[in-house]
Nucleic acid binder design. Structure first.
Length: 882
DNA sequence: TTAGAGCATGGTC
DNA sequence: GGACCATGCTCTA
C-alpha cells in the first residue's frame, strides 16, 4: 500500500506528485485525486491522475501490496488496503467484499426516497444481504485480509480517550469546531473483540496510518460519493467543502495508543505522536468506511454516520424512530436526522435525581470523550428545538465507568416522560448537533406488532418506520432509510428488547411485553373496565389529607357491554360473543370476563351456543350500537385539552392490560418503599416514581400523576355538577309543581325527572351497584365509606366533601392541584357552553345536566362496560388492536 | 431535615 | 465470569 503524504499542505506546497511512489512533478494544473482529510484533493501528476481517474491507480502502484481481495459477486480483484480504492467496494456481513459496481447493481438506491419506499428498500436490501450471507463463511472469510477501512472499527482502543475537559465550556457536537473535543475514540469492546482476529491489520494500520492525520477516507469521485462511510469528527476544519462529501457528525471517539489497554488506536489530539503537520491542527478526523457489518450505505453523497458505533450497541439501544419523531426532531428542514441510540428510561432515570444513565457504549461512541469524572456540559436540543444543557459525566464503577447525563429533570419533565418512556438521541446534520427525542411508552409497539401494524395498516403506529438494526440502515438523504436484514433481525431482537424495555428494577412499571396489546382507550373507559377481583375490599390511603382508595390487587378487565332496558323496563345489558360476534342479552348485573363467549352465557342457556341465532334484528342492533366514529375522536377534534387528557392514559391502560383477570407476573414487585402496595397496585401512589423520588408536584406539574389526578378530579367535578344540576332541576321541578298546583303534569318534567334519576344514580338498583360495582364511578356516596361495597375500578376517589373544604390558600400541593383542576374544568365547561349551542344563558351545571340527559335519552341506550352505568365520557367503541 | 453527589451493590446479560 | 447498569446507600452541604 502506498504511503501517502500525510497532509494536503505538503501536497499543495510540493511540486511532486502526491503519490509517494511517483517521482514525477505535477503539472501546473495537477490532476485531482482522492480526497484528503483536510478536504483537499490529492494533487497528482498527469500519469497518476489519469490512473486514478480510470480506476487503475492501485493496479499500477499497489500491485504488490497486500489487501487485494475479490468481489464476491463478480470476482473482480479489488485492492482493499489503501485509501485510494477504499470507496470502490463494500463489506459484506459474512465477510468478504463486493465491488461497488455489483453492490449498486444489486441494490439500486434511488435518491430522495420517501419513507415508504425506504421500507421496500429495506426488504430488498435485506433479502439481498441475506442472499449474500448464505454463502459459506469460510468462503468469504478466506477471501483476503480485512480491508483497512474496516480497521477503525476493529482497533478500538480504550474507551475513554482521556482528554481533560479543561476550559471547555459547553460542547456542542460536533461541528462547532471551536467547541468540540476533537479526539475520537472507539468503543473498547469492538477492539477487544476483534483485535485478535485482525492483528495483522492492526499492524498494518499502525504502520501505514500511524500519522494522526492519516486520512482514512479519501476524496471520492462523484461516483463514489455514495460510498458508505462512517464519518467522524473533524476539528478545526472548515466546512466549506461540499457537504455531500464532507463528513459531518459526532465525533466517534477513540483513544491514543498509549491509553488504557495499550491497544493500537488512531491517534487523537492526545496522541503522543507529533503531528506531522501541526499547522493543520487535525484531531484524528476520520472518515471511516463500512464496518464489518457491511452496511451498503449509499447516501447519495452524504456520508453515513456512526454505523460502526451502532453495530456495537446492544439492540435495546438501537434507535427506533418513527417518521413523526424524525419530523419532529428535524428542527431544520434542511437537516438530516441520524438516530444514534435510544434509552428506555428507568425509574431512576425519570426520577427526580435528574440523572440519566447512559449506556456506556453509547456514551463513549456518540458523546465526547471525557477523562475527568466531572465531565463536561453538553448541549442537546429537544424536538422542539429547545436547547438543554446537561452535564455529561461518569463515575468510576468497578474499574469501569458509568456515564450519566445530569440535570435532565427539567427536560424529562418538559417532555412529560416517565419510566418506561424512551428517549432517543439523534444527530442533526450537517450541524452535527445532538438532538433528544422521546417516545412515550405506549406509543412504542413491540417490533413484531410494528410489522403487523404496518402490514395491516390498522395500528396506531402505521406511520412508524422500524429502523431495525441501526447498523443496518442508512438514511438516504432526508427522506428515507435503507436497511438490511431489518426484518429478519427484528424477530430475534424483539424478545430481548421486550425483556429489556424496562430495567430489572423498574418493576412497578415492568410488564410482560408479550402480553402487550395496543390499547387506545380513554381513561374513563379504562376505569370503567377495571375492577378489583371479587371480594376485594379497598383500603384507604391518605395523601396530603385526601383519602384515596387503594386497590392492592390486580384489577380485572371486564368486557364492554351495552346497557339498555327491555320492553318491561328492566335493565339489561348486551354483550357480544368473542367468537361468533353475536350479541346476547344478559342481566344488567352480569359481570363478564374480557373474553366472553356464548358458551359463558349461563343466564340464557338457550343462547349459550354460538350456533343459536341472535335475538336482535339488524335494525335493533344498529340502534343499539354506537354510531361510527368514536366519541373519543370527536372529542379530540373538538377539544385539544381533551385529547391531551386521552394521551395520559398510558399507565392506566397498561395496568388495565396487565390486570386482565390475572395477577401480575412475579416480576412486578412493589418496591420496598411502598410496603402497603402490592403488585398491580394502581393507586395514585404507585403510579408515581418509586421511593418518593419523583418530582414534586407543583400547580403546573404535568406529570402523569398530576394529570391523572386532574383528570379524575375533573370527572369528579362533572359528577358534582351533575348532582348539582339535578338538585337544581329537582328544585325547579318542585317549584313548578307548586306553582302549577299539579295542573301541569309536564311530561317533559317528568321525563327529566326520570332521566335525572337515572343520571343521578345510574341504576338505583342496589343489586346493580353491588354486582355491577362499576357504577360506583358515578356514585359519589360510594367513597364515603372507607370500605367500599363497590368494587368498580381503580380510581382516585377523592371525597367530594373534602373538595368543598378546599381552601384556595392552602399550601398543600395537591390542594392547589385540585383547585387548578377545578378551574380548568370550569373553563372547559364554559368553553363547551360557548362553543356548543351558542346559548350561554344556561348555567354550566345545567348544561352538564343537559348533556347527560341528552345522552341518556337517546334511544334509551346507555353505553358502558359490563355492569357499568353510563359514563358520558365513555367511548362507545373500544378500538383495541392486538 | 433534605437534597444532591458519589459510591457500592447486586441483578442481568 | 465479567461487564453493564439500575438503584440503594451513605456522606455532605
Amino acid at each position: 500500500m502506498a504511503s501517502a503524504p500525510s497532509s494536503s499542505s505538503s501536497s499543495s506546497s510540493s511540486k511532486l506528485c502526491f503519490n509517494s511512489d511517483c517521482k514525477d512533478f505535477k503539472s501546473e494544473r495537477p490532476k485531482k485525486g482522492w480526497r484528503l482529510r483536510t478536504g483537499d484533493l490529492a494533487e497528482l501528476c498527469d500519469r497518476c491522475g489519469s490512473a486514478f481517474e480510470e480506476g487503475r491507480f492501485c493496479d499500477i502502484f499497489h500491485a504488490n501490496a497486500s489487501g487485494w481481495r475479490n468481489c464476491e459477486t463478480c470476482r473482480k480483484r479489488i485492492h482493499c488496503g489503501c485509501i485510494i480504492s477504499s470507496n470502490t467496494f463494500v463489506l459484506l456481513d459474512p465477510g468478504g467484499i463486493e465491488c461497488f459496481t455489483c453492490a449498486r447493481k444489486n441494490i439500486i438506491l434511488p435518491s430522495n426516497l420517501p419513507w415508504p419506499q425506504s421500507l421496500s428498500l429495506q426488504n430488498r436490501l435485506s433479502e439481498r444481504l441475506r442472499d449474500i450471507s448464505s454463502k459459506s463463511w469460510s468462503q468469504l472469510a478466506g477471501s483476503g485480509p480485512v480491508p483497512w477501512k474496516q480497521a477503525p472499527s476493529l482497533f478500538n482502543p480504550a474507551s475513554s480517550s482521556d482528554m481533560p475537559p479543561d476550559g471547555h465550556s459547553v460542547v456542542e457536537l460536533p461541528n462547532n469546531f471551536d467547541k468540540i473535543y476533537g479526539n475520537e475514540r472507539l468503543p473498547t469492546s469492538s477492539l477487544e473483540k476483534k483485535n485478535e482476529d485482525f492483528s495483522g491489520i492492526s499492524a498494518n494500520w499502525n504502520v501505514k496510518l500511524g500519522s494522526r492525520e492519516m486520512v482514512l477516507m479519501n476524496g471520492m469521485r462523484n461516483e463514489d460519493k455514495s460510498s458508505p462511510c462512517i464519518n467522524m469528527c473533524q476539528q478545526h476544519h472548515s466546512l466549506k467543502e461540499d457537504s455531500s462529501s464532507q463528513p459531518f457528525g459526532l465525533s466517534v471517539p477513540y483513544s491514543s495508543p498509549n491509553e488504557r489497554n495499550g491497544l493500537i488506536g488512531v491517534t487523537g489530539i492526545h496522541s503522543q505522536q507529533t503531528p506531522p503537520h501541526p499547522g493543520k491542527q487535525f484531531s484524528g478526523t476520520m472518515h471511516l468506511a463500512l464496518d464489518s457489518s457491511n452496511e451498503a450505505q449509499v447516501r447519495n453523497g452524504r456520508p453515513r454516520a456512526d454505523a460502526r458505533g451502532r453495530s456495537q450497541l446492544l439492540p435495546r439501544y438501537w434507535p427506533r424512530c418513527t417518521e413523526l419523531e424524525l419530523q419532529q426532531i428535524s428542527i431544520d428542514s434542511n437537516s438530516v436526522i441520524t438516530p444514534l441510540f435510544q434509552k428506555t428510561l428507568s425509574a431512576s432515570d425519570a426520577g427526580r435525581i435528574g440523572r440519566l444513565v447512559l449506556p456506556k457504549k453509547c456514551a463513549e461512541t456518540y458523546f465526547p470523550p471525557i477523562s475527568q469524572p466531572e465531565g463536561l456540559p453538553l448541549k442537546i436540543l429537544d424536538a422542539k428545538g429547545k436547547e438543554w444543557i446537561f452535564q455529561f459525566r461518569f463515575w468510576p464503577n468497578n474499574n469501569s465507568r458509568m456515564y450519566v447525563l445530569e440535570g435532565v429533570t427539567p427536560c424529562i419533565q418538559s417532555m412529560q416522560l416517565q419510566a418506561g418512556d424512551t428517549v432517543t438521541f439523534s444527530r442533526l446534520e450537517p450541524e452535527g448537533r445532538l438532538v433528544m427525542g422521546f417516545r412515550k411508552a405506549t406509543n412504542a409497539m413491540p417490533p413484531d406488532q410494528d410489522n403487523e401494524a404496518n402490514k395491516t395498516g390498522n395500528g396506531f403506529s402505521a406511520h412508524e418506520v422500524e429502523l431495525g438494526d441501526p447498523s443496518s440502515w442508512s438514511k438516504i438523504d432526508k427522506s428515507g432509510y435503507i436497511a438490511k436484514e431489518a426484518l429478519g433481525s427484528k424477530s430475534l431482537i424483539s424478545r430481548k428488547r421486550k425483556n429489556n424495555i424496562l430495567g430489572s428494577k423498574s418493576k412497578r412499571l415492568k410488564i410482560e411485553n408479550d402480553d402487550i396489546i395496543e390499547l387506545k382507550i380513554t381513561w374513563q373507559e379504562a376505569q370503567g373496565l377495571l375492577r378489583p377481583p371479587p371480594n376485594h375490599v379497598p383500603s384507604i390511603v391518605v395523601i396530603e389529607g385526601f383519602e384515596f382508595e387503594e386497590y392492592e390487587d390486580a384489577p380485572v378487565l371486564g368486557k364492554p357491554t351495552i346497557f339498555t332496558s327491555d320492553n318491561m323496563g328492566e335493565r339489561i345489558q348486551w354483550a357480544q360473543c368473542e367468537d361468533c360476534l353475536k350479541w346476547r342479552k344478559l342481566p344488567a348485573c352480569a359481570l363478564l370476563p374480557s373474553k366472553w363467549t356464548c358458551s359463558d352465557n349461563s343466564w340464557d342457556p338457550e343462547r349459550s351456543s354460538c350456533s343459536v341465532a341472535q335475538e336482535l334484528t339488524s335494525e335493533q342492533l344498529e340502534n343499539l350500537l354506537p354510531p361510527s366514529g368514536s366519541k373519543k375522536m370527536k372529542a379530540v377534534k373538538q377539544d385539544p385539552d381533551h385529547a391531551e387528557a386521552l394521551e395520559g392514559l398510558d399507565t392506566l391502560a397498561n395496568l388495565a392490560i396487565l390486570g386482565e383477570g390475572e395477577a401480575l407476573p412475579a416480576s412486578s414487585q412493589a418496591t420496598t418503599k411502598h410496603p402497603r402496595h402490592r403488585p398491580g397496585c394502581s393507586c395514585i401512589v404507585c403510579i408515581q416514581p418509586p421511593s418518593g423520588k419523583g418530582p414534586k408536584h407543583k400547580q403546573t406539574c404535568t406529570c402523569n400523576v398530576c394529570l391523572t389526578v386532574k383528570r379524575r378530579f375533573r370527572t369528579l367535578m362533572l359528577r358534582r355538577e351533575k348532582k348539582q344540576s339535578e338538585r337544581e332541576a329537582e328544585t325547579t321541578r318542585k317549584k313548578m309543581q307548586q306553582q302549577n298546583s299539579q295542573q301541569l303534569p309536564s311530561s317533559e318534567i317528568l321525563l327529566d325527572d326520570d332521566s335525572l334519576h337515572n343520571s343521578n344514580t345510574g341504576d338505583s338498583s342496589p343489586n346493580m351497584n353491588k354486582d355491577g360495582n362499576d357504577g360506583s364511578d358515578d356514585d359519589p356516596h360510594r367513597i364515603k365509606s372507607s370500605v367500599s361495597p363497590f368494587k368498580g375500578q381503580i380510581d382516585l376517589n377523592i371525597q367530594p366533601e373534602r373538595e368543598e373544604e378546599l381552601s384556595p390558600g392552602s399550601d398543600s400541593g395537591v390542594v392547589k392541584l385540585l383547585h387548578d383542576a377545578t378551574e380548568m374544568y370550569l373553563k372547559q365547561q364554559q368553553n363547551v357552553l360557548n362553543s356548543g349551542t351558542g346559548d350561554s344563558s344556561g348555567s354550566q351545571s345545567q348544561h352538564v345536566g343537559d348533556v347527560v340527559r341528552e345522552e341518556k335519552l337517546s334511544n334509551g341506550v346507555i353505553h358502558g362496560s359490563s355492569s357499568h352505568n353510563a359514563d358520558k365520557e365513555h367511548t362507545q367503541s373500544l378500538p383495541m388492536n392486538v
